[in-house]
């Protein structure tokens, strides 16, 4: 029973982080039709910025906020500096072919990932470093019995819950959120109704950058920080997005939590070295059984 509760709570906390990563991926996918493989590279970079600030005796929370802002800036920069010029260039012969239009941005995002990792290595050296958390990672006690949940788990779950509520309000209650949903659904019609689709898309990249930056801040107290730490998070986040449905924001969050439980239960009841294989099997199963994802809509191809 104790191990079940441990797996459940750590699965919830991990799942919350995966949900953020997957949300970031889906935001960009819906807006730009690109899976951003550099996303966790960007997060790694902003987490290093936060870590650097804390080392120079800034408070945790000011570093936290600055990391989120630089995450947004980095996301917008990737779109404005690279992805938008790349996808808007229609006359290029290579981009004329259907399959290459999706392949080239993927390669570009891998290029960004490589450059960001190398830069982080040059600026902040390659060795792992710890990252502080504002809450002690000890198990919460009632009386003398240890509960299966730590204070840090609660902190993570709380922060992510708050983020998800804010995101939901943004998308359902504000005009900008409506514009984002519209331009994901049908860019042409949205453009005709006077919305600047390009800026809306860049905003999507910025929000995605913030979400993944937050994920980086929340995961590194447990995993430590090195240029490669967050690679695994991207893989899990991608799987979560596919399981939940790449086209659905709610699905991406759901997928994140499902993956959190899968990984946590494999960790507790099986062995940690089985996690990769579990992810691969889970991804392949999802692709075979329901390729559009749990909450995703089936792609309609017009001829």
């Amino acid at each position: 029973m104790t191990s079940f509760l441990t797996a459940f709570f750590s699965g919830t906390a991990q799942g919350a982080i995966y949900a953020l990563v997957s949300l970031g991926l889906v935001l960009v996918w819906r807006g730009a039709g690109i899976v951003n493989f550099a996303q966790m590279g960007q997060a790694m970079f902003t987490t290093y910025i936060a870590s650097q600030l804390i080392q120079h005796s800034y408070s945790y929370w000011s570093a936290f906020v600055i990391a989120l802002i630089s995450g947004a800036a980095l996301g917008a920069l990737v779109d404005l500096g690279l992805m938008r010029p790349l996808t808007s260039r229609k006359n290029s012969q290579l981009l004329n072919s259907q399959s290459m239009r999706t392949t080239i941005p993927v390669i570009a995002s891998l290029g960004i990932l490589g450059v960001l990792k190398a830069l982080a290595g040059i600026f902040w050296a390659g060795e792992e470093r710890g990252f502080p958390s504002p809450v002690a990672p000890n198990a919460i006690k009632i009386g003398s019995t240890n509960l299966a949940i730590t204070g840090f788990d609660l902190f993570v779950i709380g922060v992510v819950f708050l983020t998800l509520v804010l995101t939901t309000i943004f998308f359902t209650k504000t005009g900008m959120g409506l514009a984002m949903r519209a331009s994901a659904l049908n860019p042409e019609v949205t453009r005709l109704s006077g919305i600047k689709v390009g800026s809306v898309r860049t905003l999507g990249w910025a929000i995605s950058g913030t979400a993944s930056s937050l994920a980086g801040l929340l995961v590194t107290p447990r995993t430590n920080l090195s240029p490669n730490t967050l690679d695994l998070l991207l893989i899990v986040g991608f799987t979560a997005a596919v399981v939940g449905g790449l086209t659905s924001l709610a699905g991406s969050v759901l997928g994140g939590f499902i993956l959190g439980y899968v990984i946590s239960f494999v960790n507790v009841y099986s062995a940690p070295e089985n996690v990769f294989i579990a992810i691969l099997i889970f991804l392949l199963l999802a692709l075979f059984i329901r390729p559009q994802g749990i909450l995703g809509s089936k792609e309609v191809r017009r001829v």
């Binding site: 899976v35 799987t239 596919v242 294989i277 392949l284 692709l287 075979f288």
Partner: peptide
């Protein structure tokens, strides 16, 4: 499996595979 996938799906799935297959050896 891949013939059903396109573009980014295929990229992501093969990336997961790149991580998972060496761990099978362990």
């Amino acid at each position: 499996a891949a013939a059903r996938l396109s573009g980014p799906y295929l990229a992501g799935t093969t990336l997961v595979m790149a991580l998972a297959i060496p761990s099978i050896a362990v």
